[in-house]
Design a protein around this nucleic acid. Structure first.
Length: 455
DNA sequence: TATTTAGCGG
């Protein structure tokens, strides 16, 4: 009894150290405990596994699994769930799937949470069919799906392009007595907003309000972002002040959403004002907030300020991601340093960041700087292209009055299955006619029309 | 003791 009680006390103190990210202290407590005859149990080790996965790495979490086996304690479903969820959080999705397999091979039965995480991983990997199969298995087994199960399902459907199915599922579940929580509402509102189903989204928002739940900061940020995306700036700012008047504290998410919208629409002074507020509240602490600010400076051609922030980011122990590098490439272009931008693009590629936006940006700026042949060369070197890549290059070829080349590229864009803009087509057709190539213009027109027909 | 939601680039 006494020893059980002491182990329980040991676990409580280790849990609080882990929560405070004091893992060295937690390890010392573990050793002290053992020295005093207080033996750690499965809970002690599971707490450590979770903390290592959250704050250090999956490998460190996994080594705790070995340590517990050596100590004669068998890992259980919670040990594995912590590892699987930890890997998923760090976007190591195939590692999660491997760990799930390993758990089964060890003879440990997955529980509802294991299936929930597995389903989430499969959705995140863009495998909705497999995720749906996991859901079916949950239903067919004697596990009762929880709110989290349905939330993951609705979120996964939305993120895989099935927002309408998610909405149908939600309606269906409501009829069967399912009581959604705030996460359900937020997930669905976000999915519908992203699918541009604004009417449906506001209907769900209304339902949320009459359901007795209070919209939270996440709901507000989601709806605000949606307004900005749909160019309803003023409505977005109204939501912002409503959020403030209701006393919600602004976090990095809300600040970055607002700043990005202001920067995008060229409202520099307002952006500066909000940035000042954000910096004063001391929440510029992650890569995304740095990227938002670096972008703000790059857009204005204030490259020195941007590079200073880049130093600050690294001094804070953070690592640049593909967005940081893309913003820098864009900034170098905007400052007229095309060669520097090309060098930075090569550098980011060498680091393994193959960002299409950065390529598109450089192609556009090469074209605008009159270096259309370099732009073509860069285009040909690209492994992946999107509709923007083609559109940008076609417009720049028109600018250089190389209409025949632009026409050929427009056709290959259509052949690749990308949609083209009316303005792009007009630029090429008008250009061809302008230089007397009316026959070519006619041929291009009919190719565009046949590409529009359903196959 | 463990699972789900929101933010940045052309």
């Amino acid at each position: 009894m006494v020893s059980w009680l002491s182990t329980r006390l040991l676990n409580i103190s280790i849990a609080s150290m882990c929560k405070a990210q004091q893992l060295v202290k937690a390890e010392v407590a573990l050793i002290d405990g053992i020295r005093l005859g207080v033996l750690p149990d499965v809970v002690t080790y599971n707490t450590l596994i979770d903390a290592y996965c959250r704050f250090i790495s999956i490998d460190d979490g996994y080594s705790v699994l070995h340590r517990m086996r050596e100590a004669g304690i068998k890992p259980d479903v919670i040990s594995y769930n912590s590892l699987i969820a930890g890997a998923a959080r760090k976007c190591l999705l195939s590692r999660s799937l491997d760990l799930f397999e390993e758990m089964i091979q060890m003879g440990i039965h997955p529980d509802l949470r294991s299936y929930n995480i597995l389903m989430d991983c499969l959705f995140k990997l863009g495998k909705p069919d497999e995720a749906n199969r996991v859901f079916r298995d949950i239903i067919l087994s004697d596990l009762h799906p929880s709110k989290a199960t349905f939330n993951i399902l609705i979120d996964g459907l939305c993120k895989n392009g099935y927002a309408s199915n998610a909405l149908m599922l939600f309606r269906n579940l409501r009829h069967r007595g399912f009581v959604p929580n705030i996460v359900t509402y937020n997930v669905l509102i976000n999915g519908l907003c992203k699918a541009r189903r604004l009417v449906a989204a506001s209907k769900i928002l209304k339902e949320l309000e009459i359901s007795g739940h209070e919209p939270n900061a996440i709901t507000y940020t989601t709806v605000m972002k949606c307004c900005f995306r749909c160019k309803k700036l003023e409505r977005g700012f109204e939501i912002l002040s409503e959020m403030r008047s209701k006393g919600y504290t602004f976090d990095g998410f809300a600040y970055c959403t607002v700043i990005a919208a202001l920067v995008k629409t060229g409202r520099i002074e307002e952006a500066d004002y909000i940035i000042h507020q954000m910096q004063r509240s001391g929440i510029v602490s992650d890569v995304v907030s740095y990227n938002t600010l670096i972008n703000h400076y790059c857009k204005q051609g204030r490259l020195d300020d941007a590079l200073n922030l880049l130093d600050e980011l690294e001094e804070a122990g953070l690592e640049c991601d593909q967005y940081t590098h893309t913003v820098i490439v864009n900034g170098l272009c905007k400052a007229g340093n095309i060669d520097g931008a090309q060098q930075h693009l090569n550098y980011m590629n060498a680091l393994g960041f193959n960002n299409l936006v950065a390529f598109n940006c450089l192609i556009d700026n090469l074209g605008k700087a009159g270096q259309i042949d370099r732009a073509m060369k860069l285009f040909k070197s690209m492994e992946f292209k999107d509709a923007f890549t083609y559109t940008i290059l076609v417009h720049n070829l028109c600018r250089a009055r190389r209409f025949l080349c632009a026409s050929k590229l427009l056709v290959s864009c259509l052949k690749s299955g990308f949609r083209t803009l009316k303005a792009t087509e007009r630029a090429v057709l008008g250009g061809l006619r302008g230089i007397g190539y009316t026959n070519e213009a006619r041929k291009l027109r009919s190719k565009i029309q046949s590409a529009r027909l359903p196959h």
